[in-house]
Design a protein around this nucleic acid. Structure first.
Lengths: 344, 344
DNA sequence: CGCCTATTTGCAATCGTTTGCAAACTATTC
DNA sequence: GAATAGTTTGCAAACGATTGCAAATAGGCG
């Protein structure tokens, strides 16, 4: 338990009888140091318990090995899973994560300003409300940035997106194959890009059949993206003269809400009285009470690809902007009529 | 869109026709600057779009306005809620959060080393597996640290803890009042402090009656702290010769698992065939399928108190170590026999 | 041994801020 | 108007690393 301040490179240098440069070079990758020198320095550093001072290093490089992650409402199953994977991926890449929550009255302008002030190496923007301005600001200020599940003014930023399109299409096919006649897509009010995309792909896939007749399509909005809103919606939804027999929701949370509501308000059972497919594959979707058939977003792949693209852009800030589509996987459980998966 | 590097205090000073010190003082709280000077500087800074370079400032102060948060398995409902609140609280205090996930093979020693290297202003340790060593290291290296829901070698660190004790006691009282005879406490294997405390308080409250007879107490461990483990446990639990009629679990996740398992395997309904009380009040606990009576941990209060204590310690590193107990609130829903709450 | 080349090493400048100190200024009081 | 006390301001040192450049050293070969 040394009483002195932190150990500096100078002290190490003195103990090892070498120059400060030598110490620095020993601790910078790819610098030119002989094996002898490295050993001497390492020994001295070890003895003194030396660690490079990131603040000094970052100051000199005008860049800190920190990735800013912007997210809103992270206490949501999908969001928190994605964040967890993201943190893991960033950490294994040797960087650290600074999380900024927006919304909740925190000034977005400030959040972005802080990224600038901290001189973060890059920014990852998660789906949700963080506004376009942050994204654009990053682009303009030359901070490498990638957005996950968030389409924006094209090509100002690298984008990583789950394959909402084939999710929507496939949902339609599955439901039609199950004999659905009254299709309904459910989203949350004021939904952002991902939800809308899922819905439009869904509609697109049934458009021909709807026009030809014999199939009806409907779309409605829940108040918010949570169970409660789905629950409330289910009451009116199934009370209609022509209730849906097949539902596709923009999120599992909404689907769970619908399932709960249909059960409580109308004694209807998913997979028997009607079909329903969700999106995300949050943990609860697999719980016995729901057994929700849904599309799994590969959060780890999203995170990995985001990091890869971010590193590329850090390397070469002027490289072409990219858009990556990450496949989703259909998880067949028990909420499509007639396709109940054999369960354990 | 200036092409030059970032704007520095020197440029602002030149434009405003004042010294660099004046600029610095304008942007440091509590520094001595006249109103005239401040206005001049602010005008120039505005024109140039100047922002203090945190890296330079932090370098000089040997401390960055960043709070390290150590957490494991953050993609868990309670943990992510707590983290969200924590981020919010830290942000409104004018600092930022650097999140480090431990477990998952990441070397804990490294995580701590990084805190040192980044010279974070403080560290908040969340419940979970992060080992004692991190906590002790922080204490020894003089990094202000507080731990939430994590009792450790006393008085090396400030502690903020939910009132596990009264939770456990109250659970016992409620269940006994509901006429329970076969009490069971369920925890996860290898549980940390919080869970154990809840169980021991629970047992303590019934000890007299157990000894006097007419009441039996049992305790058993699920494999992990998740729904699946509770679900699996329910199968054997209710198959016993003397199945429990009242259960208290260390977490809502386990309680939900038990409820699901009892329903699937044994067609038993919580609140009718047996009573069960959880802990945490995660979102799903309130869903119609569960309506779990549970104790709500006040995550916001935990976060706020943690931040308060951390700031106190940053101010005065030598102040007395504290332990704060945050009250929990019983949420009566529908899983205690005879006490079903009138529902909407 | 001498020459050339490739590698290793040290010197010293540099990054942008904060802050102790002393000088300059302002206000107050006699 | 001078003396005093209190504010405001600028100068310059300091923080701890990295890195361009040139000097030193090592290695290879005739």
């Amino acid at each position: 338990m040394k009483n002195s301040r932190q150990v500096t490179a100078e002290q190490v240098a003195r103990l090892a009888g070498v120059s400060i440069s030598a110490v620095s070079r020993t601790f910078t990758e790819g610098a030119s140091v002989s094996e002898d020198m490295r050993k001497k320095v390492l020994a001295a550093a070890d003895e003194l318990g030396y660690r490079v001072n990131f603040l000094a290093r970052s100051f000199h490089k005008q860049k800190i090995p920190l990735v800013g992650v912007v997210v809103s409402r992270l206490d949501t199953p999908f969001r928190s899973k994605l964040l967890a994977d993201l943190i893991h991926v960033v950490q294994t890449a040797g960087l650290n994560v600074m999380v900024c929550e927006t919304g909740k009255g925190s000034n977005e302008k400030d959040v972005f300003g802080q990224f600038l002030q901290y001189r973060v190496s890059g920014v990852i923007i998660l789906s949700g409300t963080p506004s376009e301005t942050i994204i654009n600001d990053c682009a303009h200020q030359g901070i490498p940035a990638v957005a996950i599940n968030r389409e924006t003014s094209l090509d100002v930023v690298d984008q990583i997106i789950s394959d909402n399109n084939s999710g929507g299409h496939m949902a339609a096919e599955l439901l039609i194959k199950a004999g659905a006649k009254q299709l309904t897509f459910i989203n949350r009010e004021g939904s952002t890009f991902s939800g809308i995309k899922r819905g439009s792909a869904f509609l697109q896939a049934v458009a021909d059949k709807v026009v030809a007749g014999g199939l009806s399509f409907n779309s409605c909005n829940a108040h918010a993206d949570d169970m409660e809103s789905g629950y409330a919606l289910a009451r009116t939804l199934f009370a209609s003269a022509t209730p849906p027999d097949a539902i596709f929701t923009a999120s599992d949370l909404l689907a769970c809400g619908i399932i709960e509501g249909a059960r409580s308000h109308h004694q209807l059972t998913a997979g028997e009285d009607y079909s329903i497919i969700g999106f995300d594959n949050i943990d609860t979707a697999g719980w016995p009470s729901f057994q929700l058939s849904t599309f799994q977003q590969d959060t780890l792949a999203l995170a990995r690809q985001a990091m890869t693209r971010l590193q590329e852009r850090i390397q070469d800030p002027h490289k072409q902007k990219t858009t990556d589509i990450i496949p989703v996987q259909f998880i067949n459980r028990a909420t499509i009529i007639g396709s109940r998966h054999a369960s354990a």
